[in-house]
């Protein structure tokens, strides 16, 4: 058995894989020693690990659960209690499903809140007023108006597509 095969069996990847990772850990490790030197390592580690937890175990489950709830509620309500015979048969591929017209503006509005919540919810007010000389108060209204515009645009698009699909189906 060649050395290369032996290495691949023991390690699970080519030699350069380990070399690249080792170099990466070297640079990251050196930067970590600077963090210790700067005397901020406790808060730094908490925020660094917290960042992973915040995304993977809080943000992701939250938006997935919200999406799942929206999907199940939208996929059940239109069919329930409505006899199939009354519905005009239409080419199914053409009729737009309402889900994405709700999903997209909700996600964009949520994204804006996620990024700008210190301004929108006035968390940054004391520092902001001291630095900029203005208040963060207008941001809440701006976010609400932008969100309304997103939902309105999405609803308009949905109605237009639905009408277009209706004409095609007729």
């Amino acid at each position: 058995m060649t050395g290369r095969n032996l290495w691949a069996r023991a390690y699970g990847a080519p030699w350069w894989h380990l070399l690249v990772l080792a170099l990466g850990f070297l640079v990251a490790g050196y930067a970590a020693t600077r963090v210790v030197d700067a005397g901020i390592w406790v808060g730094f580690v908490v925020w660094f690990v917290g960042a992973v937890i915040l995304h993977d175990l809080v943000l992701f489950p939250l938006y997935s659960a919200a999406d799942l709830a929206a999907r199940s509620s939208l996929s059940h309500t239109p069919h329930r209690g409505r006899p199939a015979a009354r519905r005009r048969p239409r080419p199914t591929g053409r009729r737009p499903a309402p889900l994405n017209y709700l999903r997209v503006p909700t996600a964009f509005s949520g994204l804006l809140l996620l990024v700008w919540f210190p301004l929108i919810l006035h968390g940054a007010e004391p520092n902001y007023r001291a630095a900029v000389g203005l208040s963060t108060i207008p941001y809440l209204n701006r976010w609400i108006l932008v969100s309304l515009a997103l939902f309105a645009a999405s609803a308009l698009l949905y109605v237009l597509r639905r009408l277009a699909a209706g004409w095609v189906g007729r």
Partner: peptide
Amino acid sequence: LNIQLFYVFPFSFYPAHFYGAWIFLAAFAV
């Protein structure tokens, strides 16, 4: 958070964002 002047982190922004960048970029390059 820093561009919104929302200084809730328990460290100064400059060293944290600077060293954080080197750690991230090392892992990113790998």
